[in-house]
Design a protein around this nucleic acid. Structure first.
Length: 695
DNA sequence: GAGTTTGAAACT
DNA sequence: CAGTTTCAAACTC
């Protein structure tokens, strides 16, 4: 009976598709892997199962989860990556470019796309994990891993020079290796950034998964922490007994204090992280870098240092970038330790840039510098000096800026610390402060009260869309905005050009929600008129951009020929110019910046990153929804249109980075990647909506 | 560093 | 919901 039924199906199903699938390398690969093999004409179901076999249990579990996490993870990289990306392009450096961008693209795609993407996504992330954790699924994932690696290596310079591809692979390996080494601070950083990934390391996937889910879905990360931890003894030692309570090692897996720390810090604290980044200054960063580097072995120092950077918090990047431009408002974290931890996370990013550049091109100006100038020159023009000055003051005078409450007892939203979900610490100049661990109950109660009044009170003021990058640009040109202020500002006299304006402060344009008067917000006016300034800037950049591309191409060729140290080549080509491309970053960073860092999510609301977040956040926050939708709709058009046009029309940020330039064929190879990313995006587009069932 | 300005948060 | 007050950051001198 069954057979009869099955057979027909199987025949139909298998035979027909089989021919199709067989051709695909994936199928072959799978077939090879699968122990089941061709044994018998398995029912259709089986056949498919085999297909899915790779991803099934492990993948499925993780993928979704990962998608959330990853998006975060990657997102963080975006800014960094891009900068790197560009930088690398500049010189020869295929290395940074290759690895990072690819991963990033993969992530994006993955996040956007569902199943296939998921696998890819997983692969991108899993590779590291899997390799290190033999426990985890083996072959099923391995393939993906390979694919990823291959892509990464192949993609980039691929045609250009094998060496470069190798480098890329090496880079990945290094990352992995570092991770293996895991005890080194540097790796810790890396991992810390990828904290989420770490979870998977735990032998018990289910737990990890659970943890992730909690993390993602609920604002209370502490739950996660609460979850038993499969920990690594070695790591735990270092963990500072900070704060408070729950010192259950949440994810003991975390290698470093920082990472652990971060995890420990529940929703509120987590935010801290986000906010804190901005506060972090060069100085700290440098120190951190040094420390990191120092820890690393001389020979590998560079790599080590670099590695960490790969998986960092975007926030850090964005923040750092922004910081350079704008003084940060938020102060800091809980304690010196915390700060350190943060700095640690930050460090990687910075360090990466710094290290690479420093090592590769010491002569180049500091990373930060470029962004400053390039980033939003116009924007900053007016108050740049002031800001700079201020930031200096804030940065140097005090390790971090804190509140200065006199009457609110730091139990109202007036208090930045409280609003940010962090306890006040020494640096604060507050009086009669109740926002301390000692008064935890009071704090929680007050917080609750406020939340009851306004559930979003502690949510990020600035809501960014899933792809802040994409959206930001989109918004700017077309719609209200991917990123915008939760409630909108109400400025009367500042014209939304000062930090009094929360929109401006948050680096986002004003939206319809704003009731501001005489809005001249450089990030976008309430009326929708975009940044005129930006446009002009973009145009200028456009030219430069093309030139640079040509240059890049040239470099690529050279690198091919040389097929050796790209770094050696770099010297010849000054990064600065390419950095210019990075301009977007800063912008992005700005948009993303300060306030709530998206991916990290805010304590109260499940404000997470992008897509995944959207699904959740949508329930809570409609703005996001809107944004997302807009974006979704917009994207296709954008893609269809010529990249350049898009770039102008849209925001410089993402567009620029991604948009392939029509330039020469060579550039094509490099850009192609980008192009691919887009392609993927296209595919994903349809899928995107599906991700948000809620809609 | 003190004083002023500003707009969000809180209150009525 | 609108108006007013309170508050602390942002800004100026």
């Amino acid at each position: 009976m069954d057979k009869s039924q099955k057979n027909p199906t199987s025949q139909i199903g298998t035979s027909t598709p089989k021919s199709k699938f067989e051709d695909s390398p994936v199928f072959n690969y799978i077939s090879n892997l699968s122990p089941i093999e061709s044994v018998k004409s398995i029912s259709t179901a089986q056949t498919f199962s085999s297909l899915s076999f790779t991803s099934p249990p492990p993948v499925f579990t993780s993928p979704h989860v990962i998608s959330h996490r990853e998006s975060r993870f990657f997102r963080c990289h975006n800014s960094v990556d891009r900068s790197k990306h560009l930088e690398s392009l500049d010189g020869s450096a295929v290395k940074g470019e290759v690895v990072v961008p690819l991963v990033e693209d993969l992530n994006k795609e993955a996040s956007l796309e569902d199943e296939e993407e998921t696998s890819v996504e997983t692969s991108s992330e899993l590779p590291q994990i899997l390799k290190f954790d033999s426990q985890t699924s083996e072959h099923s994932d391995s393939p993906c891993t390979e694919d990823v690696v291959i892509e990464a290596s192949s993609d980039p310079p691929r045609g250009d020079n094998g060496s470069s591809s190798e480098d890329v692979t090496m880079g990945l390996q290094n990352m992995l290796v570092v991770r293996e080494g895991n005890d080194t601070p540097g790796c810790g950083r890396l991992i810390s950034d990828a904290t989420e990934l770490l979870v998977f390391r735990s032998p018990n996937d289910s737990e990890a998964f659970r943890c992730l889910v909690d993390k993602i879905s609920s604002s209370e990360r502490r739950f996660c922490a609460g979850v038993k931890s499969t920990k690594r003894p070695d790591i735990n030692k270092d963990i500072p007994a900070n704060g408070s309570s729950n010192e259950n090692q949440p994810l003991a897996v975390l290698p470093t204090n920082e990472s652990v720390f971060n995890l420990h810090r529940g929703g509120m604290r987590r935010r801290c992280l986000d906010f804190e980044m901005p506060g972090k200054r060069k100085k700290d960063i440098v120190d951190d870098q040094q420390s990191v580097c120092d820890n690393n072995v001389a020979g590998e120092s560079s790599s080590s240092c670099v590695v960490p950077g790969i998986g960092l918090h975007l926030n850090a990047v964005a923040m750092s970038a922004k910081d350079s431009n704008i003084s940060v408002i938020h102060g800091y974290s809980i304690s010196g330790e915390i700060q350190k931890s943060f700095s640690g996370s930050t460090t990687p990013i910075q360090s990466q840039d710094t290290v690479q550049e420093t090592s590769d091109q010491a002569e180049n100006e500091p990373v930060e510098e470029v962004p400053k100038a390039l980033v939003f020159p116009e924007l900053n023009l007016g108050s740049l000096k002031k800001k700079m000055r201020k930031s200096e003051q804030a940065g140097e005078g005090e390790s971090c800026k804190r509140c200065n409450c006199k009457k609110s007892k730091c139990l109202k939203l007036y208090c930045e610390c409280f609003a940010a979900g962090v306890y006040c610490i020494e640096p604060c100049s507050c009086i009669d402060c109740f926002n301390k661990p000692i008064h935890e109950e009071t704090v929680l109660a007050t917080r609750k009260q406020i939340e009851s009044r306004n559930p979003l009170a502690f949510a990020p003021k600035v809501i960014r869309n899933a792809d802040s990058i994409m959206e930001a640009s989109d918004d700017a040109s077309k719609t209200p905005a991917s990123a915008r202020h939760k409630r909108g500002c109400n400025c009367k006299k500042s014209n939304c050009m000062k930090k009094y304006c929360e929109c401006y402060q948050g680096g986002v344009g004003c939206s319809m929600n704003c009731r501001c008067e005489g809005c001249t917000n450089v990030f976008g006016r309430k009326d929708g008129s975009l940044l005129v300034i930006m446009e002009s800037k973009l145009e200028e950049n456009q030219e430069t951009y093309e030139k640079r591309i040509a240059k890049i191409q040239h470099n690529v060729e050279v690198s091919k020929e040389v097929e050796q140290n790209p770094s050696s080549d770099q010297p010849s080509t000054p990064l600065p110019p390419y950095r210019h491309l990075v301009v977007h970053q800063p912008f992005l960073s700005k948009n993303r910046l300060p306030p709530t860092q998206f991916f990290l999510g805010t304590g109260s609301s499940s404000f997470r990153k992008p897509n995944s977040d959207l699904a959740q956040s949508q329930n809570e926050k409609k703005p996001l929804e809107t944004v997302t939708e807009d974006k979704t709709e917009i994207m296709p058009e954008i893609l269809l249109n010529s990249p350049i046009a898009n770039i102008k029309a849209i925001s410089p940020n993402s567009k620029r980075v991604s948009p392939p330039q029509p330039g020469s064929s060579e550039s094509g190879s490099i850009l192609r990647r980008r192009g691919n990313g887009r392609k993927l995006i296209l595919r994903s587009i349809p899928a995107f909506p599906s991700l948000n069932p809620n809609q």
